[in-house]
Design a protein around this nucleic acid. Structure first.
Length: 683
DNA sequence: GAGCACTGC
């Protein structure tokens, strides 16, 4: 592997590899001094250009090429063009898969510009709800990983593509692993197909071994190869604490102040684990900053996390007034999803919040864990984008060596019911024998199979049921919600259920602007119904439509207009799928009973009853739960029986999105799951 | 009276 060449500040400048530039960062821009050079000259200045013939040679001779490309190498925009220029597109398109939508749209726009074609013609992209390609004309197509997996349902061998490049594969999302596993099978059937996998140094060898089918000791028979391309990140100097930080929030704030007082100009980025921590740290820094003397310069402190609205997030991208140093306190959102310009110093708490699945309780927990080395490297890289930077890790250096190399892929730590359903729809019969890049625990797989069986998606023999299971797989939803939609015709309430399901897909429906908490609560109360949160969401949606999707009406009732508009979009898609399956769109005339019964038909595994001691207990597994304070039922008299959509682990286990049910419905609608005796015992 | 890392189909 080639050594990374570091550039001295001012020695050279570069065009940005835009693969991880968020749309929001479009408000800022990268100054490009080579603009006047013309696009072709700019392209030749990218580090990847020197590897052009080497890459093309490998693609020619090996079926799989693993590309280790540092940030700023230009791989995502250039390699597809190299393939195109050398005639690879004669027999099919070049496909580039990205984990995120923005990467698809921005990269496609950049490549179209470089190739002097209109976006959507020779160069295009396809993401959910937005297809900008022209069949028969498009040669280079950027897609999200998830969409390519969906495409495989219609075309399992991906015959329209001659080469597939999986970008950012080191992120190892559920879809990355699904795709890599499936592509390995496709490669065996299609010797003409070429696969390029872009990854980080740390897991390149793992991926090489996964794809190399050479079982001899003769390396010339290898079917895969690795190539490294240097990047254009500046050096980052590292600092560690001598002792582990007792309180990393406090320690982060102190470090920020120390940097501000002792280091040269440049903005600071702090990594913490959650929104609450971010807010706490922001106030701490603000407190300290207030006591700074005049000649010490001032600080602009902003928080950055997923639950902020996009206009609130925008504050982190704005450049501070001259002489003011910006401090962005962020969650993991700043590690990959958004790139904040101007960062020179990074403070890394060393922790991250990740999802963890428990097959015993059938649910996912969010837990705070130490980061991996890969993640620590990624975070420190955020300091070296504009010039030489510094990283302050809030733990001792010995501790870094003890960190695991990489974060376990999502596939081994999340619920697999959706992924398994998807794979089965793609013809993978024996899930336990599927070649996953990192095999998930067998008990996670069997739990997923059990869940799918109980929902009726699988037959006794373990095959996908016809037509229910096949249809469920086509919905981009959790299997429970897909089932709910597919049976809604029989309950005569598809109109209502499709609205509920769409509403469950969006966040921030109920807004609570600071200082208007009381007003917001009063406004929200108008939608509340005793049947629970799902029916309340239905009320909100119906009212939104009744008032002509008015933005003014939304703000009057403290509802997120963007979220509702997105729900409407999702609803349209779901309705189209239901129509395709000839599910009649009916509206329930005899009240909400039918709707609640239909909800039960999908969510029945998530039933809980009121324990005499005041908490709730799940029927499956007898786990203790509580009503989430955001639920409309939180302030009501506690119902005897509820179904939840999700659980959330904090200090307690909380149920969200509840529906009040009659336990008799469980016996009636899921007799295979609930025996009369178990329910009688409980009562 | 308590609190939700982040994507994506």
């Amino acid at each position: 592997m080639s050594k990374i060449k570091f550039l001295k500040p001012g020695e050279d400048t570069y065009t940005e590899d835009r693969s991880d530039v968020d749309q929001i960062s479009g408000t800022s821009f990268v100054y490009n001094p080579h603009r006047s050079l013309g696009l072709e000259k700019q392209r030749q200045r990218l580090p990847v250009f020197s590897a052009r013939s080497h890459i093309l040679h490998l693609v020619e001779t090996k079926q799989t090429t693993i590309i280790v490309g540092e940030t700023g190498s230009g791989k995502s925009t250039q390699i597809p063009q190299y393939l195109y220029e050398t005639g690879w597109c004669a027999d099919g398109m070049v496909c580039v898969c990205e984990p995120r939508r923005v990467a698809c749209t921005t990269l496609a726009a950049r490549v179209a510009e470089e190739a002097s074609v209109m976006l959507g013609k020779e160069v295009g992209y396809a993401v959910r709800f937005d297809d900008r390609t022209t069949p028969g004309l498009t040669q280079i197509k950027f897609v999200t990983e998830g969409l390519l997996v969906r495409e495989m349902m219609a075309d399992p061998l991906l015959r329209q593509y001659c080469a597939i490049m999986v970008d950012e594969a080191h992120e190892r999302t559920l879809y990355t692993d699904t795709l890599l596993g499936l592509l390995k099978k496709v490669l065996r059937r299609r010797k003409d197909l070429r696969l390029l996998v872009c990854s980080a140094t740390i897991d390149a060898l793992h991926l090489f071994n996964f794809f190399n089918s050479n079982r001899t000791s003769d390396p010339s028979k290898d079917t895969a190869a690795i190539i490294s391309i240097e990047g254009r990140n500046y050096p980052v100097e590292m600092f560690y604490l001598e002792e582990p930080a007792a309180d990393y929030i406090k320690s982060s704030a102190e470090t920020v102040l120390k940097i501000h007082k002792g280091e040269g100009p440049g903005d600071i980025l702090v990594f913490l684990t959650g929104a609450e921590e971010v807010e706490a740290c922001v106030s701490l820094i603000k407190e300290h900053a207030a006591s700074l003397s005049r000649d010490q310069g001032s600080l602009l402190v902003v928080g950055m996390h997923g639950s902020l609205t996009s206009s609130e997030q925008l504050r982190a991208f704005q450049s501070p007034p001259t002489g003011v140093r910006k401090v962005v306190v962020a969650t993991n959102i700043a590690e990959t999803s958004v790139t904040i310009p101007g960062i020179v110093y990074v403070v890394d708490s060393g922790f991250v919040k990740i999802r963890w699945y428990s097959a015993e309780s059938h649910n996912e927990t969010l837990m705070v864990v130490p980061t991996s080395q890969a993640s620590a490297i990624q975070r420190s890289g955020r300091a070296g984008r504009v010039r030489a930077g510094k990283i302050f890790r809030l733990y001792p250096e010995e501790q870094y060596d003890k960190l695991s190399e990489v974060t376990p892929p999502e596939m081994v730590r999340t619920s697999l019911s959706s992924a398994v359903l998807c794979l089965m729809a793609l013809g993978i019969e024996n899930m336990l024998r599927f070649d996953f890049p990192s095999p998930p625990p067998a008990r996670h797989l069997t739990a997923a199979l059990d869940e799918l069986f109980s929902l009726g998606a699988l037959t006794e023999e373990g095959h996908l049921s016809h037509p229910l299971g096949e249809r469920m797989a086509e919905f981009p939803l959790s299997p429970h919600l897909a089932k709910m939609l597919l049976v809604s015709g029989e309950f005569g309430c598809s109109e209502e259920v499709v609205s509920i399901v769409a509403m469950l897909q969006v966040q921030n429906v109920f807004t609570r602007p600071r200082g208007q908490d009381g007003q917001a609560r009063r406004a929200h109360r108008k939608f509340e119904v005793k049947e629970g949160d799902l029916l309340t969401l239905l009320n909100v949606y119906s009212a939104y439509i009744k008032h002509g999707t008015s933005r003014r009406w939304c703000s009057q009732y403290f509802l997120g207009h963007r979220s509702l508009a997105r729900a409407a979009e999702i609803r349209t898609r779901m309705e189209k799928l239901l129509t395709k399956f000839e599910i009649p769109m009916r509206s329930s005339k005899d009240g909400m009973d039918a709707v609640c019964r239909c909800i039960t038909a999908g969510l029945f595994p998530n039933a809980a009853y009121l324990h005499p001691e005041g908490h709730y207990t799940t029927v499956r597994g007898r786990h203790t739960l509580h009503i989430h304070p955001s639920s409309v039922l939180y302030t009501q008299q506690q119902p005897q029986w509820v179904l939840y959509h999700e659980v959330l682990h904090t200090s307690r286990v909380l149920m969200r999105d509840l529906t009040v049910i009659d336990p008799g419905w469980l016996l009636e609608l899921a007799p295979h799951f609930y025996e009369k005796s178990t329910l009688l015992q409980i009562r």
